[in-house]
Simulated assay, not measured.
Amino acid sequence: MMKILAVTACPSGVAHTYMAAEAIDDACKRVGIPCKVETQGSIGIENEITPADLEGATAVILTNDMPIKHVDRFEGIPKVKVGVGAAIKQADAIVTKIVEKLG
């Protein structure tokens, strides 16, 4: 079974961080794929991805508008790097592409 992880962050660390997280989570739900999205916003890290979450992860989506903290924990997991705007507007297409390539 596939499992997608994601980390979203934007320069201001407010609205777009959470909008991207919601869009990715909703896109995964629409296709029935378990997903966990960590946000790295202005109030710090929320919904932090744990070592247990990393087990069996198919891919991790990382927004690339600013550096993601602790990115080394995703070593060995295929990464998809997208802008926060793309994560918000094209989450369905991003998830579909992951399913096509790795499913």
Rank of each mutant, 00 (worst) to 15 (best):
H70I: 09
D26W: 08
G32Y: 04
A23C: 11
G76A: 06
E75F: 14
A6Q: 04
A91C: 10
A57D: 11
K81S: 13
K69I: 15
V71C: 04
E22N: 12
K79T: 14
A27L: 08
K29R: 14
I98N: 03
I43G: 14
A21D: 08
D72H: 06
I49D: 05
V7P: 00
E22S: 14
G76W: 05
Q40H: 05
A57R: 01
A9G: 05
A59G: 09
A91S: 15
T50M: 13
A20T: 03
P67T: 07
V7F: 10
M66C: 12
Y18V: 05
D92T: 09
E38N: 10
T63A: 07
R30M: 14
K3V: 09
A15F: 11
S12Q: 13
I45H: 03
K81H: 11
N64H: 10
K101C: 12
A91D: 07
E75S: 15
E75R: 14
A20C: 11
A6F: 10
I61P: 03
V37M: 06
M1R: 11
K81Q: 13
P78K: 13
S12C: 13
L5S: 02
E48M: 13
I33Y: 02
M1L: 12
F74V: 11
M19T: 06
I45G: 01
L102K: 14
P11W: 01
N64E: 14
I94H: 00
P78V: 11
K29P: 00
E75N: 15
I24Y: 10
I88S: 03
D25I: 06
D53S: 09
V80F: 14
V82I: 15
N64S: 14
G44Y: 04
Q90V: 00
V84Q: 03
E38A: 00
S42G: 07
A15H: 12
A20G: 05
N47D: 09
A9V: 03
G76V: 05
I94M: 02
G85K: 10
G44L: 08
I43S: 15
D92C: 05
H70K: 12
V31W: 10
A59M: 13
P67K: 09
V37F: 00
G76M: 04
V99K: 14
G13T: 04
R73G: 00
I49T: 07
V60S: 09
V31I: 15
A52E: 15
E100F: 11
I77N: 13
A91T: 03
V31L: 12
E38T: 00
K81E: 13
C10H: 01
T63N: 08
M66D: 02
A91I: 01
K101T: 12
K69N: 14
E38C: 05
K36Q: 08
L102N: 13
A86I: 14
A21P: 06
I98H: 04
A20I: 06
N47I: 10
A27M: 10
L102E: 13
P51F: 07
R30L: 11
T8D: 08
E100P: 08
D53K: 05
K36R: 07
V60P: 04
V80Y: 14
G56Q: 04
G76P: 06
V99T: 08
I4V: 15
E55L: 13
I24E: 02
A87V: 02
